[in-house]
């Protein structure tokens, strides 16, 4: 693995150009090089979704994405979800509704919710359940996450000008 490849991509709105080994996994690049430890590593098999990020707006398990493949893409992580001086609407909703316990799945759930609300600003419970079924939460039993997503939809709509 002596060869290196160059990638040019955006992370949370900041453009980055860097040299990486071709077998670098995006999860490791974000956590180890960029210290974005809010992107959680868990199953590393693309199942649990703790490492969910958005690539050009689409949710992806960053443990299953080669870093070279995001060349030219915009990557969004939990780190970019805040707002000036505090929490973003999705984050506020999860905090308010208690849609987290140990917190390990929470960044992934927040990213999933962000993508869901962009695609469907007023999702019904069935759609919410269907979307968040791509990530595992072992603590909450999900209903309080469903409540959080519903509340996030309200807060996100309020935020629109």
């Amino acid at each position: 693995m002596s060869s290196r490849v160059s990638i040019d991509f955006e992370v949370d709105g900041v453009r980055r150009s860097e040299e990486i080994a071709p077998n670098t996994v995006l999860l490791d690049l974000l956590r180890d090089r960029h210290a974005l430890t809010g992107v959680k590593a868990s199953c590393e098999r693309g199942v649990c979704g703790a490492c969910t990020i958005l690539v050009d707006g689409t949710p992806a398990a960053s443990c299953g994405v080669f870093a070279f493949s995001v060349d030219g893409a915009a990557v969004e992580t939990i780190d970019g979800q805040g707002r000036e001086g505090g929490l973003g609407p999705v984050q506020r909703a999860f905090a308010e509704c208690g849609g987290f316990q140990c917190g390990y799945c929470t960044p992934g759930m927040v990213m999933l919710t962000t993508a869901l609300l962009r695609a469907h600003p007023e999702p019904d419970d069935e759609r919410i359940r269907s979307w968040i079924s791509s990530n595992v939460c072992r603590c909450t039993g999900y209903q309080m996450i469903v409540d959080s997503v519903r509340r996030a939809a309200e807060l996100s709509r309020e935020e629109q000008p």
């Binding site: 992580t77 939990i78 506020r92």
Partner: peptide, 9 residues
């Protein structure tokens, strides 16, 4: 622990 956990911090 809400703020720390929903921000990934």
């Amino acid at each position: 622990d809400a703020a720390a956990k929903v921000t990934g911090g």
